[in-house]
């Protein structure tokens, strides 16, 4: 059983979580159609260390996990805006 640590609820089995995809910043609202289409569809698909959204379903907590998508190792998890805090 793989475990993931929710910053609020503690370490839980992965089955309690939902993957929300990579954290991405949308382009400015007045960007070109090409830039917007790129944001909507394209992903940075190559493996590496990524920041991703995860959701703890029983408590409704969204948080960010920093994870190596090649080795599936979670480096750390934190709430948005609390990256620097322990």
């Amino acid at each position: 059983m793989k475990l993931l640590t929710c910053p609020v609820n503690g370490t839980r089995p992965l089955s309690e979580f939902v993957f929300g995809g990579e954290c991405r910043v949308p382009p400015a609202a007045d960007c070109s159609d090409k830039v917007w289409a790129d944001y909507v569809h394209n992903r940075h698909g190559a493996p590496g260390i990524k920041q991703e959204w995860w959701y703890h379903a029983p408590s409704g907590t969204w948080f960010i996990a920093e994870r190596n998508t090649l080795t599936d190792q979670v480096i750390r998890t934190f709430l948005k805006g609390q990256e620097g805090k322990q």
């Binding site: 790129d38 569809h41 394209n42 992903r43 698909g45 190559a46 493996p47």
Partner: peptide
């Protein structure tokens, strides 16, 4: 391995593994 090959030519795709 498509995203890794595409990265070599600087091409972004919607593919997720």
């Amino acid at each position: 391995f498509t995203p890794r090959i595409c990265e070599m030519v600087g091409l972004d795709t919607p593919i997720v593994i």
